[in-house]
Design a protein around this nucleic acid. Structure first.
Length: 396
DNA sequence: TAGACTTATTGGTCACGATT
DNA sequence: AATCGTGACCAATAAGTCTA
């Protein structure tokens, strides 16, 4: 129906994959050098995170576009537009931004209040209006933790709690060197779904789901290829969230009634019929009554914090059979020794956690200036990580 | 069991109008 | 005139089903 409208004279149907054609290495270098000169203290010009985008900086028009401003690649008389018109039948592709990239865009904007959206869009190789939409949700993206860098997509799973539970299970498999078979995934997924109250009519752990699950988690040949074995109990921080970077998983909340048997929900992979051997201690059940004593804290955790960042530490706890809920979750007691100095990454992650928490709680928790202070700390850490001094007076 | 297919949803891009 | 906000569009992808 709308096909008749998609002519070069009207809205282009296939714009974005034209970039390579316009890329000129020398031109690109010149442009980037100019940007760096114009904004000498920008993370974009000095820090590596943005370097991948420089390949897209293939064309900047000599003059401003007519108003209303066309989008980055729609200048009617620009070389890109002319080239585009001749190639408008090419398939449209999009650049995919993960949460960390959006966060960088927000940070960039925060550090460069005078930068136009058009400039930011050029810098990151995306459409200007995309920048506008990202900045509209600035607080959300700024609160994103750095560990979601590898996430392919932000779209939540249809059963996010199940996904989080399965990640816990995967980590146990990795820690115990158990092959992750389809049958094992299916069995555990159905168990988890049942425990979560997801009916079989809603979730069947179909082969398609298993395939996608394996694809999402990069499980190949029975191995979780992107996994890292949990740290040992000796090195594991028994107080996650205080000087570590962990979050509590969504599974540990009161919405999940305790199971009758402590280990029937997440038995050790060893106990499965499809696997072997050792009499390793079964992973403690997440419905351990000792963990249900802290409903307030657990229920405060945003559900979107569920999977990746939380499960590793939790699994380490589970694998080692260590209780990981502090005796008093609100009072930092019993720390007779100084904690190790956290790494910069841990510090950044910790402030991310706080910001995320504050955002999740709503605006009544902190005053605007207090929220601003949090953001300032975040910016300081970010610039420090980038090797830049934090100039607090440049901030608004 | 693999892969094609359907359906639903997300999010990037385009284009236009509003605002400064 | 320059810049920004946003609705509409649609490509990409997740999830589940079907079929060979």
């Amino acid at each position: 129906m709308q096909l008749s409208l998609d002519t070069p004279d009207s809205r282009p149907a296939t714009p974005s994959d034209d970039r390579p054609q316009f890329t000129s290495p020398s031109l690109s270098l010149t442009i980037n050098a100019d940007l760096a000169l114009a904004q000498p203290d920008t993370p974009a010009s000095l820090c590596s995170p943005y370097l991948p985008y420089t390949s897209y900086h293939s064309f900047i028009p000599d003059a401003r576009p007519p108003s209303p401003a066309p989008s980055s690649r729609s200048y009617p008389n620009s070389p890109s537009a002319l080239a585009f018109q001749s190639r408008s039948s090419k398939k449209h592709t999009k650049k995919k931004l993960d949460a960390l990239e959006k966060k960088k865009i927000c940070l960039y904007h925060q550090h460069h209040q005078n930068a136009r959206q058009e400039d930011i869009a050029e810098q990151f190789g995306i459409e200007r209006s995309t920048v506008s939409k990202i900045l509209k949700a600035k607080q959300h993206w700024l609160a994103v933790g750095d560990r979601c860098e590898g996430m392919a997509k932000q779209r939540p799973s249809k059963f996010p709690e199940l996904e989080a539970e399965m990640r816990i299970f995967l980590q146990i498999c990795v820690d115990k060197d158990v092959a992750i078979t389809d049958a094992l995934i299916r069995t555990r997924a159905l168990q988890a779904a049942k425990a979560l109250g997801i009916g079989e009519e809603k979730f069947k752990a179909s082969s398609g789901w298993i395939e996608n699950f394996k694809h999402r988690h990069a499980i190949k040949s029975g191995k979780w290829t992107t996994a890292v074995k949990s740290c040992t109990a000796a090195t594991f921080n028994p107080n996650p969230g205080l000087n570590g970077t962990s979050y509590l998983p969504t599974s540990f909340n009161l919405h999940h009634p305790p199971q009758t048997a402590s280990n029937d929900r997440y038995p050790s992979p060893d106990s499965d019929t499809s696997s072997d051997d050792q009499a390793a201690p079964p992973a403690p059940s997440i419905s351990d009554p000792a963990r249900a004593d802290y409903p307030g804290r657990l229920s405060l955790m945003p559900s979107s914090l569920s999977a990746s960042s939380s499960s590793d530490s939790v699994n380490a706890m589970q694998t080692e059979g260590t209780a990981y809920i502090p005796q008093d979750p609100l009072v930092y007691t019993g720390r007779s020794e100084h904690p190790p100095v956290p790494t910069l990454q841990e510090a950044e992650s910790a402030i991310d956690t706080v910001i995320y928490f504050v955002n999740a709680c709503g605006h009544e928790l902190l005053e605007p200036n207090e929220r601003e202070a949090l953001t300032s700390i975040k910016c300081a850490l970010f610039q420090f990580a980038s090797g830049l001094p934090f100039d607090r007076y440049r901030r608004p």
